[in-house]
Every structure is written in structure tokens, then in C-alpha cells.
Design a protein around this nucleic acid. Sequence first.
DNA 1: ATAGTTGTAATCATTCCGATTACAACTATA
DNA 2: TATAGTTGTAATCGGAATGATTACAACTAT
Lengths: 141, 141
Amino acid sequence: MKITSRFTVAVHTLLAIYVLGKEYKMTSDFIASSVNVNPVVIRRTLSSLKAAGIIDVKAGSGGAKPLKDAGDITLYDIYAAVDCVDGNLFNFHENPNPKCPVGKNIHAALDSHLADAQAALEKELKGVTLADLIERLNILM
Amino acid sequence: MKITSRFTVAVHTLLAIYVLGKEYKMTSDFIASSVNVNPVVIRRTLSSLKAAGIIDVKAGSGGAKPLKDAGDITLYDIYAAVDCVDGNLFNFHENPNPKCPVGKNIHAALDSHLADAQAALEKELKGVTLADLIERLNILM
DNA sequence: ATAGTTGTAATCATTCCGATTACAACTATA
DNA sequence: TATAGTTGTAATCGGAATGATTACAACTAT
């Protein structure tokens, strides 16, 4: 079980917009050919990023544009924007038997630890900005 | 996108075995009624836990038994035993365009950060043992 | 022998994903 | 204002993963 590629697609999309946006018009078709997915997938990604206030996209004229400074966008912001994880990362089996001492209390015993693990992952994502990635890209390019 | 309930089912299963195992014969049917899933699901879980050397199960006679000390079993061990995540937690879009400067380098720029995030989650899981959960259960029960 | 189990294969329905088609709505510009 | 190029979005499709369930062979204790 893996976290949707929507996330890495969104990161890729933003990198493209921030790095190549001055030189090219960033249409969904253009971005789609860099990411190598269907343009509609990019349009959906752009919608999410727009709803999160990260970029601006105008219907008709086209071309996505940055709204925030790259240093102010973390991987977590992107992860949250495309909603790869709806609430809890870990799936719990529904309806453990309340007549069993284990079934009755397993949520109380386990939930906080799972939340901690998820928080640790998300904290790590909060520590990386789009600017960090762009810097690294510029070295590599 | 969530991590399979196989994981929490396995934790529940082990808790049942370690907490109730002295009092009851822990058959797949018994455990299934505590977890509230189909017995076959539990048998599969037991198989994984057995393969990981955590418990012993004998075909025919039945009844799962602990092989390791609860303090030596971490949530990570269970998570790994039932293989909820096959390798990388994050899905990457395949085939980014190598002709695009972003597409060509995005893996190099992003992979390590994703690995770090996954490692942070797993480290957290390594910090909790079955004994911790049992202790908490005993207080609640 | 028998009853009770485990191990495992095979199906099935459901859910989620990304791909794709289609088309209405919108905007810049000629 | 007509047109070309875009975005927004609904609808559908096939594929993959999941858990539920049925079925039955293999095994073990009594």
C-alpha cells in the first residue's frame, strides 16, 4: 500500500512552474509532457494547488503562476493540498469486539502511537521546502 | 490512501495471544471473533507472524503461542511482518520526461527526502513494543 | 477413527487510481 | 466579434489491491 503518486506529481508540477515558468507558458499540456501523465491529471493537480493558494490558474488564457515564495512552501503543504492521505494514514479494522478485553481497549492503546508515527512523517515533510528542491535541481541541471 | 488494516489486525492478534493466551486456546476462530474479521484473515495474519518468528502455530492441533518476549517485539517488527508497505511508502510517477530538466532530475532531488520521511515514521514504530501496549491494556482492562 | 484446526487456493465485490474522452466555459487577440 | 487555445469537470474504463467468503486438503490430539 502506497501513498498516491498525486503527491510526487504535484511536487513535479510545482518545480516545473517555479523553475521553467519564466521561460515557458506553463499549460497543463506542457507540464503533462514533463511529468509524463495525462493532461487532465495535471489539471486536477493544478486545481488542488490553486485551492490551497499556492498557485494561480486562469481558465481560458491558461498558464499556471506562483503565488507564494518557494521558501514558504513545504512538502507537507503540497501533500496536504493534494490530499493523498484522508485523515489517518493507518487503517484500523472496524468494529473490534467490545465484549473482548483486547477488542474493547485496542483503540485506546494503539491510536496515539499510530498518530505519533504519522506525525513524525509529516514533520519530516514540513522540514523541506520547494526552495530546497529548486536549489538542488539547479546544481543538477 | 491508507496503510492496510492488516497491520492493526496483526497488532490486535498479538495482543490477544499475549494477553489471553494463558487463559484460552488461541485459535483463528477465537481471535477472529475478537478482531471481528473472517477467520481466514486471521490465519493469513498468523502465517505472516509465524514466518517472522514471532509466534508459533501448529496445523492440526491449533492455538498460536508466543515465541519472543513482548518487550522484544516492536510495532515496526509487526508492520514489517505483515508487509503493509512493499518497499517505498511513496509512489512515484513512472517515466518523468528525461528531456525536461525537471523531469530528468526530480528523482535525485526528491527521493532522499521521501526516504527520510518514511524512515521517521518507521523509527517511531520501532520505539513502541508490544510490552508497552500490554502495559497500557492492563491499566485499561 | 474422529473432531477440531490450520494452510491455502480460488472467487467475488468493493474501492481507489490514473488514463482517457468529451465538452462546456472562458480569455486573449487578431 | 469570431477564433484558437486553454481550463474545469463529469463520465467511463481497466487494473490493482483489499478483505470476505467458500471449499477442502492436510494435520494432530484424543
